[in-house]
Design a protein around this nucleic acid. Structure first.
Lengths: 149, 149
DNA sequence: TATATTCTCTACTAAGTTGATCGACAATAT
DNA sequence: ATATTGTCGATCAACTTAGTAGAGAATATA
């Protein structure tokens, strides 16, 4: 699993929306500025997130984006797979994007790749954006630096 | 961590040499054939492995490659990093290829990436080619299919 | 209704990576 | 001498990444 800029931007955008959930709508400009993401690139990313059902949007003045579901219901793994593809180290053990390999079924490495895959998924599929929101809030309490606001 | 074809080929080449350690030298042609790796591409890979001290070689008739150290002393992680770069999901938590990120030190995701990095490394840095050799041998005992020989 | 605002959608592009292929050359065993 | 085997550098097509650009559609408000 490699997090690309696109994946990283998407995670930050979802987090930003999660942190501003009470504000109803957030303009793409604000997200781009706060998270330091190129505006036009972010617009493409938000469109993908919208297509996959994670965010909703409205155009025009007072328009903007908002989360389509609770941050408790969105895991890092889902967003990573959406933007960067499978989290598995190799296609032949991927659930989300399996690709056949000629060494099956006797590949001596496959057991290792399964272990790596499971170890990664155990983390990213059990971490929600609510968890990350909590991290931000506790960081902000402990330092005088108010991040992400 | 994504295993590329190059990384996969390198792992197979090292394993092949480990499995034929008693034969003193192995010609690149044999490895290429057994492991189904394009010959010329494999030669580049073996040169990298040689440069990093994992294999040795000799030219001419009766020439070939052999492991420069015990398969017990070579981990998957070393070969993966050599061929495919850092195993970390992102540069800012990589030990082998750290790259700075502007969100430090308050990035709310960094703790997750550290967990992912450690989970991956725990596996790949504690699996040696001797372990993989054992897997091959036990597979060959249990099936009538003799892999890799 | 006019207008400013904001999201939407498609196209394009430069740079880098991947997965090779090719050919000449150097060393060495017989 | 010669056949064999590894060494090394160049080149390449296809793909991915990280954007940029601009026209268009929807909508709130005056």
């Amino acid at each position: 699993m490699k997090i690309s800029f696109k994946g990283d931007y998407a995670l930050k955008a979802v987090l930003d929306l999660a942190l501003h959930y009470d504000e109803d709508k957030v303009r793409i400009n604000e997200i781009a500025k706060r998270q330091d993401i190129p505006l036009k690139y972010l617009s493409q990313i938000l469109l993908v997130l919208k297509g996959a059902g994670y965010v909703q949007s409205r155009r025009g003045p007072q328009g903007g984006y908002w989360l389509a579901k609770s941050s408790r219901k969105i895991t890092l793994g889902e967003i990573i797979r959406l933007m960067d593809g499978p989290t598995s180290p190799i296609g032949c053990v991927s659930r989300s994007g399996y690709s056949k390999c000629n060494d099956e079924p006797f590949c001596p490495f496959v057991g290792i790749w399964v272990k790596v895959r499971d170890a990664i998924n155990e983390i990213v599929d059990h971490t929600t954006f609510e968890d990350i929101c909590e991290i931000v809030k506790s960081q902000n309490r402990e330092s005088n630096f108010t991040y992400y606001i």
